[in-house]
Design a protein around this nucleic acid. Structure first.
Lengths: 152, 152
DNA sequence: TTTCTTTTGCAACCACGTTGCTTTTTATTA
DNA sequence: TAATAAAAAGCAACGTGGTTGCAAAAGAAA
């Protein structure tokens, strides 16, 4: 819980904010640090809790919205209807998200991962339908929760 | 808007309710009729509006929940975080939904379709991940909204 | 440091969904 | 058909998640 923020991380945060023409503020630094320190995706509620009750709800909403607008994070739709956010890869930019990858939700630890390297296969849609975007969410057990192999 | 309910539809509704050991009530009949008269999926809000402001919000919620529990309808997760419902096929039953098909959301008319015949292709997940269920939502233009071919 | 601009925090509000309880409706049995 | 038990509907109230307008505070620039 008590996160050690290294000088590197701090510089990285400032870098990202400045590169996106955002002023460096307390909430933006804190929230961005949470994303950098986290493997999977984060829900809005997690952020409010893990930011240490320091920021107003409204501020968290606006900060997340700003990050989405700038292409720093992207939204992940989940089956349980709770929005989650994850860092974008470098090829996302303002107004143009490139986050067309598979998302994986672990049913055990409830972590959401972006599987950037998985290719979404072609779908044969019925006659008359044409799709511009396909969202794939896989549910199951992640690499950290799978039953470990017992060695002799 | 003003729907003509035929005797057949009425019988069908009663049939479905009785088959699922549900008592036949006004709201259940009305809401089930809406589903039978509709090609695509319906959102909760639509139901409240189209039921003619006759039923309490709570009643609609509970009726939908009952139908989901009984396997009469199923929930469709959408990208915009609004839950939609659609009739299940016959192989759904109480506590066991068999609705593993692709869902299609038309970006023009905003209708959601269940593409029952489309097979969800295999996904090659990274090492350590195993999935029990894959949700696929395609976005695009549906058969009713596509630009018609101009004949000479 | 001063000034201007941006961001934050607060209060209030709305939409969505849920819960507990009373009244009404449905199904059942006489 | 009337009486009864069981189920569902309606109502009020509440909780959460998200938004908006505005005044105060913090950041950037000079």
């Amino acid at each position: 819980m008590n996160q050690l923020i290294t000088k590197q991380t701090n510089n990285q945060v400032q870098d990202i904010l400045k590169r996106n023409q955002l002023s460096v503020t307390g909430s933006r630094k804190k929230i961005l640090q949470l994303f950098l320190a986290q493997d999977g995706a984060i829900a809005h509620g997690d952020i409010e809790k893990r930011a240490g009750e320091k920021f107003d709800r409204v501020t968290v909403y606006r900060t997340l919205q700003t990050f989405v607008d700038k292409g720093i994070i992207h939204v992940i739709p989940t089956a349980d209807n709770s929005i989650r956010y994850a860092l974008c890869k470098d090829d996302c930019s303002e107004g143009h998200h490139q986050d067309h990858h598979v998302h994986f939700v672990c049913t055990q630890c409830n972590t959401t991962y972006c599987l950037d390297d998985i290719v979404i296969p072609e779908l044969k849609l019925p006659k008359g339908y044409s799709s511009s975007h396909i969202e794939v969410v896989a549910e199951g057990i992640c690499k950290n929760c799978k039953t470990p192999v017992h060695l002799p």
